[in-house]
Simulated scan of single mutants.
Amino acid sequence: MTEVSLLDEPSLDEPPVVVRSKRRVSFGAAQVGATLICLLIALAIWMWAFGVDPNAQDLSQADLSPFSPGHPLGTDTLGRDILSWCARGVLTSLAIGVAVALLCALAGALIGATAGYLGGWVDSVLMRLVDLQLAVPPLLIFLAASMVIDRNIVSMVLLLASVGWVPYARLVRATVLSERERGYIAAARLAGSTRLGIVFRHLLPASATPIVVFASLQVGFVMLVEAGLSFLGLGLEPPVASLGYMIAQGRDQLGSAWWIATSPGVFVVVLILATNLIGDGLRDSFRMDSVGEK
């Protein structure tokens, strides 16, 4: 009879079981996150379809009414419905987060792939541009931009994207540096593929997995930054609904009207938690796939 020690390494038959178990957990977390996102979007669309205006003022409720059938989450000092504002703010935050992540992924991937594949002075110039971007605190950029731009959704997306592309460039560059010396890239060169063709057909697809994972996690971070800027008065302003702006409106009434700041704060937490669950699920799923292939 063969003795089995607890110190023995696991057999080759065990990793697939562990991989499948972890994949189910990751898929379940991603499902929870996706369900929360769908519920929030459904709430916002439902209120939008019924013509509920978050900027409408109910003067009869301007005395900081906490809860009523017409205002389930109460009203603020101007009689605006908190629930309708939060529902519209969810759509605003998601739109900004997804748009910024897409723009950053596109710009960062192109810059990183170009720097990694061409190398030489091109790589040096582009990486010094990355270093310059990292040397400037984003808050200074936001302060300067708030004085000269119209703070709407489009300008906020462009502003956040201007400082969010750097991680993608460094991530893709590192991937390209490790991939460009592989045999299939040399075969593509011998087959007559151009540099542009190699970048778009081979190197960028090889970087797709880390890009997708990082983008899914960045959406939540961008939404948190947007809420923080709006809270500080550097972000969106009415008539655009922003969760951070509503939190700022209620910070002086936390003792007498706690629901003004608490309700949008809860929506921010749930929204960011949901996007992070999706991102973590995608990350773990891709990781398990790579382990399973081995």
Rank of each mutant, 00 (worst) to 15 (best):
D252H: 14
A34S: 15
L243D: 08
P16V: 00
V136G: 00
G112L: 08
K22N: 14
I41L: 03
G279E: 00
Q218P: 09
G235L: 12
G197S: 12
L204M: 08
A30N: 07
A186P: 00
P205A: 00
I37V: 14
S178L: 15
R173E: 00
I37M: 06
L232F: 11
V154R: 15
G255V: 05
L159E: 04
G108D: 07
L158T: 05
L160S: 03
M1V: 12
G97W: 00
V269D: 12
F67P: 05
L36W: 04
L78G: 15
S263N: 10
I96W: 03
L177R: 04
S93Q: 04
L110H: 07
L232M: 09
A169V: 06
L271A: 15
V157F: 00
L7F: 09
V136I: 10
Y168C: 03
F200V: 02
A29C: 13
Q61Y: 15
T194E: 09
P210G: 03
P264V: 11
L229G: 01
D13L: 11
F50H: 14
D81T: 09
W85A: 15
G281Q: 04
L129T: 09
L277W: 08
R182S: 11
S230A: 13
L234F: 06
M288E: 01
E181L: 12
D150I: 06
A62L: 08
D131L: 05
R283H: 05
V240E: 14
V269K: 01
D13W: 14
W259T: 02
L39H: 09
K294F: 13
S21Q: 10
V154T: 15
G28L: 03
V52P: 09
N152Q: 12
L59T: 14
K294H: 15
G220C: 00
A44I: 02
A62P: 04
A186T: 10
T92L: 14
L234N: 06
P205H: 06
M127S: 03
A105F: 07
V163C: 06
V18S: 07
L177H: 02
W259R: 07
L158I: 05
F231I: 07
H202S: 04
L217C: 02
R20V: 08
Q133W: 04
L229Q: 00
V176I: 04
A29G: 08
L203P: 10
V52C: 10
T262S: 08
E226L: 01
S5H: 13
V17Y: 05
D252G: 10
I272Q: 01
L217S: 00
C86I: 13
M246Y: 10
S155C: 07
L126N: 03
I278D: 03
A274D: 02
A161E: 03
L7T: 10
F267Q: 11
A99H: 03
V199T: 10
V266C: 13
W85N: 15
G74Y: 06
A186S: 13
N55G: 13
P239M: 05
S26F: 10
P138C: 00
G108N: 09
V130F: 01
W85D: 14
L110P: 11
V219R: 01
Y168R: 08
G108T: 07
G228V: 09
T75G: 02
F142N: 05
T75Y: 06
L106C: 12
A95L: 14
L196Q: 06
G235P: 09
L159W: 01
P205Q: 05
E226D: 02
R128P: 00
A99E: 00
V98S: 02
L139K: 06
